[in-house]
Design a binder for these strands. Sequence first.
DNA 1: TAAACACTTGCAAACGTTTGTGTAAAAAGC
DNA 2: GCTTTTTACACAAACGTTTGCAAGTGTTTA
Lengths: 338, 338
Amino acid sequence: MPKSAPTIKEIARKLNISFSTVSRALHDHPSIGLGTKLKVKKLAEELGYEPNQTAVFLQQGKTYTIGVILPHLAESFFPAAISGIEEVAIKNDYVVLLGQSLDSTEREIMLVESMRKHRVDGLIISMAKNTTNYEHFEKLKKSNIPIVFFDCIPSMKEIHTVSCNMISGSIQAVSYLLKKGHRVIGLINGPEKLTASKERLEGYQQALLKNRLKFDPSLVVNSDLTKEGNIKALHEILKNKRKITAIVAFHDNLALDIMQELDITKQEHKPVIVSYANLPMMQFLKYKPNASVEQFPYLQGKKAAEIILDIIKNKNNEQNQNNAFYKIILDSKLIDYH
Amino acid sequence: MPKSAPTIKEIARKLNISFSTVSRALHDHPSIGLGTKLKVKKLAEELGYEPNQTAVFLQQGKTYTIGVILPHLAESFFPAAISGIEEVAIKNDYVVLLGQSLDSTEREIMLVESMRKHRVDGLIISMAKNTTNYEHFEKLKKSNIPIVFFDCIPSMKEIHTVSCNMISGSIQAVSYLLKKGHRVIGLINGPEKLTASKERLEGYQQALLKNRLKFDPSLVVNSDLTKEGNIKALHEILKNKRKITAIVAFHDNLALDIMQELDITKQEHKPVIVSYANLPMMQFLKYKPNASVEQFPYLQGKKAAEIILDIIKNKNNEQNQNNAFYKIILDSKLIDYH
DNA sequence: TAAACACTTGCAAACGTTTGTGTAAAAAGC
DNA sequence: GCTTTTTACACAAACGTTTGCAAGTGTTTA
């Protein structure tokens, strides 16, 4: 029968001193005599004493925990982001509470509630794709729990955000193709309403403009990002009257889907493809896009964690009167695989 | 200036009743009058009251948190395992504290300490690959924090474990190759001391035995699992006097490395390859092993979580006298890609 | 009419800390 | 040898809960 963990009171009793003295001794408080300090520390060591953090949490009103809610870990973007978050958290003696929303708003709400109950000091969230109601986030703000959004960000006012600007990467992607001589470049984009899609389109258009080419809306199609949707989008775009020699694909996965389809249907002139994500698995692939836009998930996670810790630490300063909101935008970058 | 969260005491003051009454009212304690019960609940709702869990934790000596420590999330095995864990955790109103050891013992120790300080109710661990000293785990056991190990398990007595029996999968893998007519089958294994490696070898030998073939030790080489190590192992095995027509590879990643190398060095008769992991990315690959052994990470995670919760919940029963230890072994299964 | 009983509610201790304040004894000043 | 300062410790409140026990009503029973 394992005895329960030793407490300060236990040490105090055994040493016949008050438990406040024990507490101070363990914290090297200057008003404690060297002798007792040593005695206390020795006994604490012997008993394997560890402060009960839940008590400390209650006392300090802090849990040294940051919550992270994201759609899922299957996409390699998120493990990378978490690693960035964890790195910063560990350095600051914080700990990471994880929840996957699985892109379900309902589950996201539940996770937010759960983390609120567990009194996380701050929250880092990549929103579920189809969340449109932000009440649960508002409630969180009212609870005085700071949030930093990254990657998939709600369209709310007065929030802290970290994101990666896809426009720059898109310009690079299209410019890359233009430089290679392509003039009829298709864009298979994601769902129209997504910010991510809008940014890709924006960059696509800007790159054309820069090169004094006219934007042809018929060269842009949207996919719902399922495998069938991707294939459908591919065939749709190939129907274009003009001969498409290159395609910008919303994501590496989409790129792989359509490359497979191009292969299966034995297209004679396969278009050159560039996409987004720069998934780690790409290094293993023989047939892959020509280039892919890197979104620096690790860095995004790191930044988000730094911000949340900064907010947490300055929470009680006069600083918080100064209602400034972080809005970090990293630049994406095209990675050429050849 | 956001006001701090409302407490039971606040509600009590506003209603001019004692806070113990409030507490009981909120918990639907039978001894509280219906009238006050309603009053209390109404006001609690209005104020947006949420019990301060850290206080509850302190009171109950539980945190409703389970810690998960694993090497890293980059390998898709672990996100799947976490998903299984999270699923069970959520259903039981538990929450998941995550830490990546990055296969560093030092970091693993730090994480264990950190989780212990945060008083997780239980811990699920996939050990760092090169951890050989188990003091930190022993200390945990002494602290009366239950642990369930999965995937990579220390060779300790009296621990709870969930693992996937690679022997069955290995037998299937080799049998698969034998059925295809291969008689000289190489095995590129992982580091010799790993249980995972031992099990693969064991299965390899058993399959041969079953088919009355003699085991030839020269057909087995070990790799350190770095890319260079994998390539080196490939060339070493190909030097064999006998003509190797098939290879069993320790892991899909190893398989991909050596397939790339076979391609680069333009071997005329490429051996057929089967490997382990059944990585999700395989579905995207055109050139991949013929088959791969699935280890059911989601299921392993789920089982591990179910066990840890069972232990936590029965901790104070007389049950814990009965020193039984869970040892769940799932069977692996060969997945044929063709 | 007193005793017994529900039914409600309040009081206070407990969980394990941290920390402000009070107070002895020891050291210093004169 | 007296006051003053310093040193080293104890006391107690607080963080927000839960819960055993006591106590106050009002109602039923003998």
